[in-house]
């Protein structure tokens, strides 16, 4: 059980804002997780394929362009098509509060808004992926 928690961080769509996702990548690594970052402009299919290839526990999606309503559920669908139902999907970025219930219903387990301490993200992932610990 000493395998590190493995996280894929991704930027779906055309959004170029990567400050947040890069900071989260560093924070998760510092917390002992293994992190793979896809880089910009990934389609939902590419993200799901990377999650499959890398055999990750968590997919973290960053979206600041307002296209989250379309892109995030599309990533969840693409993961399910590959049998990755058990992968924990979380998101962060500029996502209006009123949109969160719809994203959660689509299978995004938690949306982290602006100003979230990275420690909260680490705690949530640890709790969800390794509940026994």
């Amino acid at each position: 059980m000493d395998r590190k928690i493995k996280v894929l961080l991704a930027k779906p769509g055309l959004d170029g804002h990567d400050r947040g996702v890069l900071v989260v990548a560093r924070a998760l690594r510092d917390a002992g997780m293994e992190v793979v970052y896809t880089g910009l402009r990934q389609s939902p299919e590419q993200i799901a394929e990377a999650a499959l290839q890398e055999d990750v526990d968590v997919v973290g999606l960053s979206s600041l362009s307002g296209a989250h309503g379309h892109l995030l559920p599309a990533v969840v669908r693409a993961l399910r098509e590959r049998g990755l139902e058990r992968v924990l999907v979380v998101a962060g970025g500029v996502i209006p509060h009123q949109d969160i219930p719809q994203l959660e219903a689509a299978g995004v387990r938690r949306v982290f808004g602006p100003g979230t301490p990275t420690a909260d993200v680490v705690d949530f992932i640890c709790r969800e992926v390794r509940p026994a610990w």
Partner: peptide, 22 residues
């Protein structure tokens, strides 16, 4: 919007969900 900024027309597959957003 982002499709315009990266040179895609609004009917390009990668533009889906991004048209007129930012």
């Amino acid at each position: 919007d982002l499709p315009t900024q990266v040179g895609y027309d609004s009917d390009h597959p990668l533009a889906c969900g991004e048209v007129g957003r930012v």
